[in-house]
């Protein structure tokens, strides 16, 4: 549940403002009811229904840049929360055994419906302080190397790998360049292609470019309904290509970054339905939907041989691209 703010109200996204008025009415009804003079239960129930209906309507008609806002919303469940909700016995593993532990990327072992799996994901926070601690989920090379270490560990014991993607991108910092950000991502891409275990990637929020792909080359790639996946942020695209930073909305449309767009382009395999109002409105339900999708996609992969798993992944990415064959 989105945490109520100090006034006891839910934190709303900018475009949810029309709901404020209805929430105010609900508050008044509750106050009346609380004073004991009138029985308002029925009215309260109806008002709550009205709010849900209004929210449903708003979310049914979101444009791409509004979906970007949902995908980035600070209340959106993060990988640690999903790890707790989807899996049993999650145990975090730290460090790349080489340089450091990257707090921007969470890795660990867990049980999915009784089966051992490795879990990898970009770690965001719900407050500025948390986000600073996790570098806003922008991983350094040691994050990608930690992810690869854990993938290899899973591979050694024949355990599937599940990755959760939610990052603005790989960190563009001085140290990141010194320690080989490009090499770390490139190597992950090559090695992920060769993993001999089932591998599923779920884009839960922001799928930001190479930083997202760096842990995202699953046999199946699933996307939450209000997540995005893109080679550059709409803001970056607007300022670089449109030469007008204010046109992020147009860029979001033009770049085709929503789950629906990407399913159409066959870049992803399935859209995971979110609770009304987005995953943050009901994280347990969002997690339940993810878990169901994971189990459904994992089942056929589990019956493939190592060779078939690699071939399945290779063919998936080999096919990507649209061009003219020419003469």
């Amino acid at each position: 549940m989105a945490k109520p703010d100090k006034n006891g109200k839910k934190r709303l996204l900018g475009f949810e403002k029309p709901l404020l008025e209805l929430y105010d009415k609900l508050e008044k009804l509750k106050a009346l009811s609380g004073s004991g003079s009138l029985d308002m239960d029925e009215e309260i129930r109806l008002m709550e229904k009205r709010i849900e209906a209004a929210r449903q309507e708003i979310f049914a008609g979101l444009d791409p840049i509004q979906i970007v806002q949902v995908a980035r919303f600070i209340e959106r469940p993060n990988v640690r929360e999903y790890a707790g909700l989807i899996f049993d016995d999650f145990i975090e593993l730290h460090g790349d055994r080489n340089f450091a532990d990257d707090p921007a990327l969470l890795t660990g072992l867990a049980r999915l419906d009784g089966r051992s799996v490795a879990v990898i994901g970009h770690q965001k926070g719900h407050t500025t302080k948390e986000n600073l601690a996790h570098n806003h989920a922008m991983a350094n090379p040691e994050g990608y190397r930690k992810a690869l270490r854990v993938m290899r560990l899973a591979e050694r014991y024949g355990k599937p790998v599940i990755s959760f993607i939610d990052t603005p991108g790989a960190y563009p910092g001085l140290g990141a360049e010194e320690r080989g950000q490009a090499e770390a991502i490139a190597k992950n891409l090559r090695e992920m292609a060769e993993l001999t275990v089932p591998f599923i990637s779920v884009i839960t929020g922001e799928g930001g470019s190479g930083g997202a792909l760096g842990i995202g080359m699953g046999n199946r790639v699933l996307m939450m309904e209000f997540s995005i996946y893109s080679v550059i942020s709409p803001e970056g695209c607007a300022s670089i290509l449109f030469r007008d930073a204010a046109r992020a909305g147009d860029a979001a449309v033009a770049m085709k970054i929503t789950a629906k767009d990407l399913l159409g382009l066959k870049v992803i395999d399935e859209i995971i339905k979110e609770p009304v109002g987005g995953a943050h409105n009901d994280p347990p339900l969002a997690a339940k939907n993810i878990k169901a999708a994971l189990l459904r996609h994992l089942a056929p992969l589990l019956s493939l041989s190592q060779r078939e798993l690699i071939a399945d992944r290779y063919n998936k990415y080999r096919k990507m691209g649209i061009y003219n064959e020419g003469r």
Binding site: L189, G210, L213, V231, A254, M255, K256, R318
Partner: peptide
């Protein structure tokens, strides 16, 4: 080419 250019890194 948006996402399709990203996919070339994988390919």
């Amino acid at each position: 080419e948006s996402i399709m250019s990203l996919m070339q890194m994988a390919k």
